[in-house]
Amino acid sequence: MTILTARVPDELAGMRLDQCLAEMFPDYSRSKLQTWVKDGRVLVDGEQRKGREKLDGGEEIELDAEAEQVVEYDAEDIPLDIIYEDESILIVNKPAGLVVHPAVGNWTGTLVNALLNHAPHLDILPRAGIVHRIDKETSGLLMVAKTLQAHNSLVEQLQERSIHREYLALVKGWMTAGGTVDQPIGRHPVDRKRNAVRRDGKEAVTHYRLEQRFKRHTLIRVKLETGRTHQIRVHMTHINYPLIGDQVYGGRFQMPAECNPALAEALRSFKRQALHATKLGLEHPETGEYMEWELPMPEDMQNLIKLLTENELDQT
């Protein structure tokens, strides 16, 4: 048994207890949460309440959660690049090409399968402890909870937007300055596998600043305020600076002018979005200490930077 605690956010005021629980603890099924309410394993400000009772917002919720197997995927001996690990959390460097969670078309060979091999007890945690994802073809830092308490803490930090996440991205086009994209994101109206900026979407805020400029490309550092699916890729395409190599949002490949042969070949063969989760900061779930990790770009992106720089010199 594990006691999870959380405060009802003001935006859920007026909702029923069972509805609030579904929003606040999305990794448990509604039926499981309703059962726990009936069994008296949910306290609101220290008292038992019925699932249909409405809340005012600000109440303290205590949830007596069961540690039971919730992940049923197979453990697989897949190498993990572990950056940090203790009894509560695990920080990994995910390579480009590795799917984070099993899904249609990728039931095996994922980060979840690798985690279950490294730490079998993660099968009692929602999504094997993974509280956020990065796309298959995005590389970089990703956090994993190793206990229910840590999982609850990291999810709460994500909801409060206190997790610090920075990315490095190579985009097409010569940017003149950094800025912020504050545009809601939702499902693309035609292609359901894509997302798009749309008025009825969910709030999405992306901050970016310039790191290095080339004649027809820019290296930017991106800070996420929210974490929508494909957020950086959608927002950068929306402002007409799509990521190099983005096969979904980047549009048809066009060779930029004034490319030397080496750069032209590198751009033509770069088949993933040039995006790397370079920095991750969080409050440790047990100690409360702020911890931060930073990784350099992987070799393929570093090589692109090198060739872009050399191409600039060739033109002078």
Rank of each mutant, 00 (worst) to 15 (best):
I220A: 05
A274N: 03
H230T: 10
V144T: 06
S31M: 13
L116H: 04
K172T: 12
T176N: 14
G57T: 09
D81F: 06
N303L: 15
L313V: 14
V92M: 05
E286H: 11
T180H: 07
K271W: 02
V100P: 01
A204G: 04
G250C: 01
T147H: 02
V42K: 01
R221H: 10
M255F: 05
L55F: 05
E283S: 14
I83F: 08
E225R: 12
V155K: 03
A119W: 10
E87W: 01
T5S: 12
I239Q: 04
Q302F: 06
T218F: 00
M255C: 14
P189M: 07
V190H: 13
E160N: 12
E23H: 14
A264V: 05
A150Y: 03
E66K: 06
P26M: 03
L63K: 03
R165G: 11
N195R: 13
D74G: 11
A169Y: 00
A177Y: 04
I220K: 02
V171E: 05
Q183G: 00
D246P: 04
F214V: 00
R209W: 10
Q231L: 09
V92F: 02
R52I: 11
M291V: 08
V155T: 07
G105K: 07
P126W: 04
Y290N: 15
L33Y: 02
M1D: 14
Q231V: 12
V248P: 03
H284C: 07
A169W: 02
L154S: 07
G288A: 07
L116M: 06
G14Q: 05
W174D: 14
Q254C: 11
M15W: 08
L111A: 08
L125C: 13
T110Q: 04
M255D: 14
R228Y: 02
W107C: 11
A204W: 00
A65T: 01
K279S: 15
L267A: 06
E258C: 11
M301L: 15
L43F: 05
S88A: 14
Q212G: 07
I305K: 08
A145S: 11
T180C: 14
L263F: 01
D64M: 10
K38L: 15
S269R: 11
S162Q: 12
R252T: 15
K54E: 13
R233L: 02
L154Y: 05
K54F: 07
L313H: 12
D39G: 13
H118C: 05
E160G: 05
E166M: 09
L111T: 05
H235I: 08
K215V: 13
K146L: 10
T180M: 14
A274F: 01
D191F: 07
G40E: 10
M297K: 03
G14C: 10
T138P: 02
M15F: 11
D10R: 11
R41L: 14
V99M: 08
E299A: 14
L141F: 02
Y73G: 07
E72I: 10
E225N: 09
D135K: 06
D81Y: 09
G51M: 08
K32D: 14
A274Q: 05
Q231D: 06
L313M: 13
H207Y: 07
P79W: 01
M291F: 08
L243D: 00
L295M: 10
W174A: 15
T218C: 06
H188C: 07
W174N: 15
R30P: 06
E87A: 12
R187M: 10
P261V: 08
Q183C: 09
D300T: 05
F270R: 06
K50G: 15
C259M: 10
A6S: 13
V99W: 00
